[in-house]
Computed example of a mutant assay.
Amino acid sequence: MTSATPLSWLVTGARGQLGHDLLEVLAGRDGDQVTAVGRAEVDLTDEAAVRATVRDWLAASAGRRAVLVNAAAYTAVDDAETDEGTALVVNGSAPRWLAEELSGRGRLVHVSTDYVFDGSATEPYPVDAPVAPRSAYGRTKAAGEQAIAAVGGDATVVRTAWVYGRHGGNFVRTMTKLEAQRETVSVVDDQVGSPTWSADLAAGLVELGAREEPSPPVLHYTNSGQVSWFGLARAVFEELGADPARVLPTTTDAFPRPAPRPAYSVLDGSAWTGAGLTPAPPWRESLHTAMQEGFRD
C-alpha cells in the first residue's frame, strides 16, 4: 500500500546514473519533498558530515515520513583492489552511519550488488544465499549490508546487478559508441547476469520506499531473464539496426582485470514480488524501451 502521507526523501548519490533516475521518478510524486545530495554536497568518508546531513534533513522533514535512498557507493571495482580502505569507508561505514541516524526516525533503502556473491552458482541467488565476495568491492559492499543489519530499524538492502542508464558510463552506452567506431567488437560470453535498466530500478526503489508497510531486510531487484555480456552486446547492435554478427565472443581469461568478475550474477527476484511489489520487466523489453529513448548523446 503506497503512503497517502506526504513524504520527505533524501537521495544520496544523486548525481550518479541511478540517482538521476531516482530524481526523475520522485519529480512525479505530488506533495513529496525531495533533497538530493551528491559528492559535492557531502563527503561519504567524513562521518561528521554524513551524520549532520541526515540530521539536518530529518529536522526539515517534520510532519512527513522520512525515506532515505542510498544510491551512493564506491563503484570503481578495479580501483578498489588497491584502495580498499577508502571503499570500505564509503561502502561499509557510511551505510552504518546512515542507518544509525535513521533508526527509529525514518526508512532506509540501501542499494547493494551481486558482487557480494562469489558467482559460482548455477541457479539464481535467493536473498538468503550466503555471501562470499571475491573482490575488494564485493567485500566492502557486504560490510555495508552487515552494518545495516546490525543497526536494525526500518531498513531494506536491495541488491541489483548489471545496471545501465541514460546517465554516466555503462556497458550499453559503451557498446552503442563502439558500434559506430569499430567493424567488430569482442565481448565475454562466460559471464551471465540480468541487465537492469536504471529507470526500472529507480521506480522499484521509490515504490519500496513509499509504501506504508515494512519490508523484508533484503530484497533483489533486476530486470527478469538472463544473458551473457556477449548476448547483451548483440541485442544492443540489433536495437541499433546493426548486424549482431559484428559482436564476437571471447572469454574472461582473454581480458584479465584487477578485480575478479562473478561468472554468474543472476539474482532471484521472487522475494520482491512476494512482498507485494511490482514485478520487474524482462531485460530485453526494457533494453528496447531504453534504446528508443536514445544512448547516443
Rank of each mutant, 00 (worst) to 15 (best):
M1K: 05
T2D: 15
P6V: 03
S8T: 02
L10V: 04
L10F: 10
R15L: 10
G16M: 09
L18Q: 09
G19F: 13
D21L: 08
V25L: 00
D30I: 00
R39E: 06
V42D: 06
D46V: 06
A48T: 08
V54T: 00
D56V: 09
A62V: 14
A62Y: 10
V69L: 15
V69H: 11
N70C: 08
A76K: 10
A76Y: 02
D79Q: 10
D79W: 05
D79S: 13
A94K: 06
P95H: 09
E100T: 11
G104C: 03
S112D: 05
T113I: 11
T113D: 02
D114A: 05
F117M: 07
A121V: 00
P124K: 07
V127G: 05
P130N: 13
A143H: 14
E145I: 01
Q146K: 15
A150H: 07
A150E: 12
G153W: 00
V157C: 12
R159E: 05
R159M: 04
T160V: 03
T160A: 10
A161V: 04
A161G: 01
A161Q: 10
A161I: 03
V163N: 12
H167C: 02
V172H: 11
R173Y: 03
Q181E: 15
T184N: 09
V185T: 11
V187L: 00
V187R: 00
V188C: 08
V192A: 03
S198A: 14
G209F: 07
S215M: 01
H220V: 01
T222N: 07
N223G: 04
V227T: 15
S228T: 05
L232D: 01
A235Y: 01
R246A: 13
L248G: 12
L248N: 09
L248M: 13
R257M: 11
P258T: 13
R261D: 02
Y264E: 10
D268M: 01
S270H: 09
W272D: 14
L277E: 12
L277K: 11
A280Y: 15
A280E: 08
T289I: 13
F295P: 01
D297N: 07
